[in-house]
Nucleic acid binder design. Structure first.
Lengths: 229, 229
DNA sequence: GCCTAAAGTCTACATTGTAGACTAGTTGTC
DNA sequence: GACAACTAGTCTACAATGTAGACTTTAGGC
């Protein structure tokens, strides 16, 4: 938010030269602060002090821009494909991705949704890199390719599921969280939602990190055993 | 006058009387056949032979319409909360939901995405019912409320993750599937994506049902053990 | 027949993505 | 220096969308 209203630009700080990365990062900022709907071509153009049309030099259209954003975010994820301890590595990646998702909650719908409309082979390379690297990691650790794929699927499925789950209960201000939760639950018909209503307090304190970790332990050891036998 | 004016013998079919269910089901059909973007107020109005504006009697706005669709779809899911065999029940539900997702692939983004923008307590009741019922099932099977929530989260997280995973690789025509896959993989830079490219054939025959089932076995038995100890 | 409420329609408008033609600035070539 | 070729950016314009607000039509009850 270096330039909230647009006018604060001194003549010396001439317009930033544009390139794909600048465009995408600004777009990401915009999505982070104003949500997905806040990202319009016009708004982004204004943020960059350009005509909206100039953006089309750096992304074919809005959809491509969204793809670019997901790529950008996934690039923040570091994967060390040569780590011999695959379990530890997968565990670390999972926690990293979780934090990434919490840092960019508005991007998560993109992460989850964009691949649904693009066949695997045609996705932005940046989004395929984690897949490639994790497969490499697993195969490097001794798994057969087919087993590696199997492990990957179980792992990534679980991971994305957890993130979605957690984000559904996530609200920025923890105070407001409890309040909103109570308010919401109170609204539910008692006769039809007794359990849910009773669980209010338990719902309120949710340790996503711990829950993820437990799930991982269960999944990874299970997978290891399954594949050993 | 045997037909005062209501039915001014419009060319083809006389208008169906409107109500929320008709509107929502037609909307769902539209989403199924033409995708999410195909669902516009004007298009839906046309489908129902009404002015688009009349739809606002049955859904406050487009977002509410989407919520209604997710509710409609989730209503197709039967849950027997009094089944003493919780594992079998969860397993069956999972397979049912998977089939549901495959039957309405275009709705899956809604299923996953809508809850992210609505705090739990304010969601359409229909979308909370599965949660309530599964919690009931688990508590009925002897779990403490907190443990039930824990199990539910692991379970639903995994389930949604799997569905997303599978749908990412799902393409209607299996012939085209293989073709597109090959085509796409071939496009990938060899140096950067050796593993992925090599896995082409293995990727192509993916048995989502089996994979889901294995994952469930692992997860459920793991959870049972974890909670017993 | 009149009255009321519900159902449906018409018009109008602000916002959006983006096509297409154009301009200004930079660079390389002779 | 003249000029061509690019590259970056702008301007105008348009079709599509969601939806507000005022209106008209229909159905039932009295």
């Amino acid at each position: 938010m270096a330039n909230p209203k647009g006018i604060s630009n001194s003549p010396s700080s001439r317009k930033v030269p544009l390139n794909r990365d600048v465009v995408l990062s600004t777009a990401l900022e915009l999505v982070d602060t104003e949500g997905l709907d806040g990202l319009t071509m016009r708004r982004l153009g204004q943020e960059l002090e350009r005509d909206p049309m100039s953006l089309y030099r750096y992304a074919a259209n809005r959809a491509a821009l969204l793809d670019g954003i997901t790529e950008l975010v996934l690039n923040e994820l570091a994967i060390f494909a040569d780590d011999p301890d695959w379990q530890a590595q997968l565990r670390r990646i999972a926690h990293d991705l979780r934090l990434l998702a919490l840092r960019h909650p508005n991007v998560v719908p993109l992460l989850v949704t964009r691949p649904l409309s693009t066949p695997l082979g045609l996705r932005p390379l940046g989004t395929l890199r984690p897949l490639e690297q994790i497969l490499g990691l697993l195969i490097g650790a001794g798994f057969s390719p087919a087993d590696a794929l199997h492990v990957y699927r179980a792992y990534y499925g679980f991971l994305y599921g957890h993130i979605l789950n957690e984000l559904q209960e996530y609200i920025v201000d923890p105070e407001e969280n409890v309040a909103l939760l109570r308010l919401g639950l109170h609204r539910l018909p008692v006769t039809e939602f007794p359990t849910l209503r009773a669980l209010g307090p338990v719902l309120a304190d949710y340790d996503g990190d711990a829950e993820l970790d437990q799930g991982l332990t269960l999944l990874l050891s299970g997978l290891a055993a399954q594949l050993a036998g």
